[in-house]
């Protein structure tokens, strides 16, 4: 029953979000694009990094690959096919990288993925300079930003669906065991390598698609623009802030952070960095395990107390269902 209600609610929210650009105007749509983009990135990131606890900084490598594929192929192939090719390229890279790196643990994996993003950028640059002889590519598309938004929204919904299905499947259970203790997982007969690889591939393909879908927003594509390491960092921070281990965690982290960045850059353009940094540190100190867990702990505490006035409705609803 709860699942049905959940899906119905999700459907309503999705429909609401889908018609939003019709009422919001260009900036609102732009905001939704940015937000949806980061929610998708953070969720895709958490899909792999949450359960496995492998902190990946390769987000922008895949994001950039997607954007570049779009820029290279847009003129010569039909749009859906370009997306398919981008996904395929992302998949192949993810499998190659996954096969070679997933045995690295801890910070080595972090650094490796960062290095990977830089390596891809250098190689793309070198290829463009020496083989094609042009560096910037122009990407003129005929559709407006609403179309980009709808695609992103669809991808975002698909990401949540995939994450939800994984969470309920055998793989999800396996992942929980891997996350808790990899040795135990191996003893339970779980093929940890295969599970991790599959997850890494799915997550990477989604990230690649986000890059491919968003690229037409920028008209001009060059490696420095699409392989901007900030993307990796922001994704990671957003997912961790919300709580990477939960389905809705990345969303709860990405939306407020995104809006906060937006607000800061508008109201404190000169002191943006300082405030952002201080906030960041405050978040780590106050919400070390993510907003969701913090909120849940708070809720649990609330529930233990006898319901009083305002909080009664909240607590009551929880218990009923």
């Amino acid at each position: 029953m709860r699942t049905v209600i959940g899906f119905a609610l999700a459907g309503v929210v999705l429909a609401g979000l889908a018609v939003a650009p019709l009422y919001l105007g260009p900036y609102g749509t732009g905001l939704l694009i940015g937000m949806t983009g980061y929610v998708t990135l953070a969720s895709a990131w958490a899909m792999f990094s949450g359960p496995t606890r492998f902190v990946s900084l390769a987000t922008v490598a895949f994001f950039g690959i997607g954007a570049y594929t779009m820029a290279v192929l847009y003129e010569s192939l039909p749009y859906p096919l370009v997306l398919a090719v981008a996904a395929l390229v992302g998949l192949v890279v993810a499998l190659v990288v996954g096969l070679s790196t997933l045995r690295l643990a801890g910070v080595y994996f972090v650094i490796f993925t960062f290095g990977l993003a830089e390596l891809v950028r250098q190689l793309v640059t070198w290829y463009e300079v020496n083989v094609t002889g042009t560096l910037g590519r122009y990407l003129f598309v005929s559709f407006g930003s609403e179309v980009i938004y709808w695609q992103l929204l669809g991808l975002c919904a698909a990401t949540f669906l995939i994450a939800w299905v994984i969470g309920r499947s055998r793989i999800g259970l396996a992942l929980k065991v891997i996350g808790d203790d990899e040795v135990v997982a191996v003893h339970c007969g779980i093929s940890t390598a295969r599970v991790k690889l599959a997850l890494f591939a799915v997550s990477s393909v989604i990230i690649t698609l986000v890059g491919a879908i968003q690229a037409p927003r920028w008209t001009y594509i060059e490696p420095l623009i699409v392989f901007n390491p900030t993307v990796s960092f922001l994704t990671l921070i957003m997912a961790l802030l919300g709580g990477a281990g939960r389905l809705w965690g990345p969303l709860v982290g990405a939306v407020p952070l995104f809006l906060l960045f937006e607000w800061l850059s508008a109201n404190f353009p000169d002191h943006y960095s300082i405030i952002l940094g201080l906030l960041f540190m405050a978040i780590v100190f106050v919400l070390p395990k993510g907003v969701l867990e913090f909120a849940e702990t708070g809720l649990r505490r609330l529930r233990r107390r006898p319901p009083q006035d305002g909080s009664a409705t909240v607590a009551g609803k929880e218990v009923e269902g």
Binding site: R2, T3, I5, G6, L9, A10, V13, L17, A20, Y23, L24, G25, Y27, G28, L31, M35, R246, L247, W248, L251, V252, V255, P256, L259, L292, A295, L299, K317, E318, V319, E320, G321
Partner: peptide, 27 residues
């Protein structure tokens, strides 16, 4: 009774609130 799938709902409420708050000033 708070058990299976229970985490969905409160988060959904939170999600709706957040989005509502986010979009209100725009509208």
């Amino acid at each position: 009774t708070y058990s299976k799938g229970g985490r969905c709902l409160p988060s959904f409420t939170a999600l709706a609130t957040i989005l509502g708050l986010a979009l209100a000033p725009l509208v």
